[in-house]
Structure formats: structure tokens, C-alpha cells
């Protein structure tokens, strides 16, 4: 390979990495609907539940639900943004009597990981007052994104 080709290769690899990084960063903390296939696999039953959604109970969480919303955060130990996101969400919950935040370790909750097809940490499932999963976010989530998600998915 000629020297010029090697330089071109370096530029190409760096450009690819920068594009990957931008996509990665723009996905972080963005509220997304839960895919219908995931909801169906997670136990939603349109025949009995016309809203066709997956519901989590306080037993699943090991904690009570917030009456308006619950941020169910799934974290791993090898994850620095999980810690920052934990601080953001616990502050949001602490300021509101009707919002709660539960942070679970994925290694101890593989059932939830499989049920909701969780691929990265942190992943946050947003539950409404009845425990229905109304949206999800993943990656580092800041305060603005958490509040926007709350207003969009669980209006007060």
C-alpha cells in the first residue's frame, strides 16, 4: 500500500469513527416508544388489554410504583454514565411526590433484560402510574431529557 493510501485509510477510519460517535451521542437519552414486538414478547395481550402494553408490578421492581411515573433504570457495574444518570433521575424523583426511581443491576435481573430486549446500559423504562411501560431511553440521560420524557409520556 502506498503512503498516500495509508493516509487515506487513516482519514477514512477516523471519519467512520466520528460518524459512529455522532449517531451514538444523538441516541443517548432520547425517549423512544417500545417496539410492538418487544411489548408483545414482554407479555402484552391485546385480547385482554386493549391498550396492548406490558405492565410491571411492584413485585417485578421490588419497590413501589410512583403514582404518576416510575423511572426503572437498568444499570451495570462497568458503566460510568449509569452513575450520572442515577443522580439525575433520583433528583427528579426526589423533587416530585408522584414520581419514583428504581435502579436495578442487570446482572441480577436478566429476566427484565431479556423481556425488554435491553442491549446497553443504562436503559431506562418509563412506567406510568399503573406500571405500564410507556417508553424507554438508553445511554447517559440528562435532566432536560428526563423531564421532557416525563411530560411527553406521563403528563401530570
Amino acid at each position: 500500500m502506498s503512503p498516500a493510501a495509508r493516509v487515506a485509510l487513516v482519514v477514512l477510519v477516523l471519519g467512520l469513527a466520528a460518524a459512529l460517535g455522532s449517531v451514538w451521542r444523538s441516541r443517548n437519552g432520547r425517549l423512544r416508544p417500545v417496539a410492538p414486538a418487544v411489548l408483545a414478547a414482554a407479555g402484552a395481550d391485546p385480547a385482554h388489554d386493549e391498550t396492548a402494553t406490558a405492565r410491571l408490578s411492584p413485585d417485578d421492581l421490588g419497590a413501589a410504583l410512583g403514582t404518576r411515573a416510575t423511572f426503572l433504570q437498568l444499570s451495570s457495574e462497568v458503566c460510568t454514565p449509569c452513575r450520572r444518570t442515577h443522580a439525575v433521575l433520583s433528583a427528579v424523583a426526589a423533587e416530585r411526590h408522584d414520581v419514583s426511581h428504581v435502579d436495578l443491576d442487570v446482572a441480577e435481573h436478566l429476566d427484565l433484560v431479556r423481556r425488554f430486549d435491553v442491549m446497553r446500559t443504562p436503559t431506562i423504562l418509563l412506567l406510568d402510574g399503573s406500571g405500564a411501560v410507556v417508553g424507554r431511553m438508553s445511554g447517559a440521560t440528562d435532566r432536560r431529557q428526563a423531564l421532557d420524557a416525563l411530560d411527553a409520556a406521563c403528563p401530570a
Binding site: 421492581l61 421490588g62 419497590a63 413501589a64 410512583g66 403514582t67 442515577h86 433521575l89 433520583s90 424523583a93 426526589a94 416530585r96 411526590h97 408522584d98 414520581v99 419514583s100 426511581h101 428504581v102 435502579d103 436495578l104 443491576d105 441480577e108 435481573h109
Partner: peptide
């Protein structure tokens, strides 16, 4: 609340 040994629940209501 948060009686489960796994829950790291933060300041729920």
C-alpha cells in the same frame, strides 16, 4: 419500599 435486596431505589415518595 425497596425491600428487595436488589433495589437501589432513590428517594421514592
Amino acid at each position: 419500599m425497596s425491600s428487595s435486596p436488589h433495589a437501589r431505589s432513590s428517594a421514592p415518595p
